[in-house]
Design a protein around this nucleic acid. Structure first.
Length: 272
DNA sequence: CTTAACGCCTGAAGGC
DNA sequence: TGCCTTCAGGCGTTAA
């Protein structure tokens, strides 16, 4: 389940290989994705890639005519770049392929077909990007702003961290892990956190996101970077997916509850 | 305005 | 062995 660090890993990989390449053909083996990518088959051939950006968990491919592709990996989406001389392995769950003029490929695979790719016209502001809150690594996310976001909601702090309109980029894994490191019970109403707890939570969020980026992200199920390598951060996780196992700090058993239809793992002793 | 629940999807895992 | 059910979860949509 790609979150900010996994998407950042992907984007850095893509930004290193895509700019300057010219699209020759577009293929959509999956009609559902083709429908969502309205006009892509007609508009993309002949365009070249100008850049790749991350917005929260979204990926934006900038094209030379000022238009762009906005993609979201959701749960199981992946982008894999294949150089012109690489062997062409038949890919499972292939949903889209961009063929470049030099014979290199950008493949989009997505087992569960939640992922989306959309073409955005020049000058159009995509609402899904416009409505995103700042991510914890952006300079706009100052401590006062973070505290203000917490203070405006009575929702459980864990659930608030997942609300992309207020804070972008954080998903289930890093929400659980940052709350553990900050020693905060995920069930606490966001507006009940003291200013010291707010400071701790933002510090831990930033630290864990940077650390995960350094390790090329977390591979829980099947995350892969652009060159099809797994991340390594899963070995650093302290509560996520560790229900029943002893807390690495106090030895208490890690508990798992459900909040807003998602699982939350936490240590009932360390997190108060 | 805010908050909560559902549906989309498919493969893995568990029960019997 | 094999069928059936449950689970995983990001986010758009719908409902309250």
């Amino acid at each position: 389940m790609p979150e900010l660090p996994e998407v950042e890993t992907i984007v850095r990989g893509l930004a290193g290989v895509l700019p300057g390449r010219v699209i020759r053909e577009v293929h959509f083996p999956d009609s559902k994705l083709a429908t969502g990518c309205l006009g892509c088959a007609e508009v993309l051939p002949g365009r070249s890639l100008a850049g790749v950006q991350r917005h929260g968990k979204y990926i934006r491919f900038l094209l030379d005519d000022g238009s762009s592709l906005v993609a979201h990996l959701r749960m199981t989406g992946k982008f894999v770049f294949t150089g012109p001389l690489a062997p062409q392995n038949p890919a499972r769950h292939l949903r889209m392929v961009l063929v470049f003029t030099d014979g290199s490929l950008l493949s989009f695979m997505d087992m569960r077909r939640f992922g989306t790719i959309r073409h955005v016209s020049p000058g159009e502001t995509p609402p899904e990007l416009r409505d995103l809150g700042p991510d914890p690594l952006q300079k706009e996310m100052t401590l006062p702003r973070f505290r203000a976001i917490l203070g405006k909601s009575r929702t459980a702090v864990k659930v608030l961290l997942l609300d992309q309109r207020r804070i972008s980029g954080v998903g289930n894994i890093y929400a659980c892990e940052s709350l553990f490191r900050a020693g905060i019970d995920p069930r606490r109403p966001a507006d009940s956190l003291t200013s010291d707890e707010g400071a701790r939570l933002l510090r831990e969020l930033r630290g864990i996101l940077r650390e995960a980026i350094r390790h090329n992200g977390t591979t829980i199920s099947d995350f892969r970077s652009v060159d099809d390598k797994t991340g390594e951060f899963q070995y650093w996780l302290r509560v996520y997916d560790r229900e029943g196992e002893p807390c690495r700090v106090c030895g208490e058993r890690i508990e798992r509850i459900r909040q807003a239809q998602r699982s939350t793992s936490f240590c009932p002793h360390c997190q108060v």
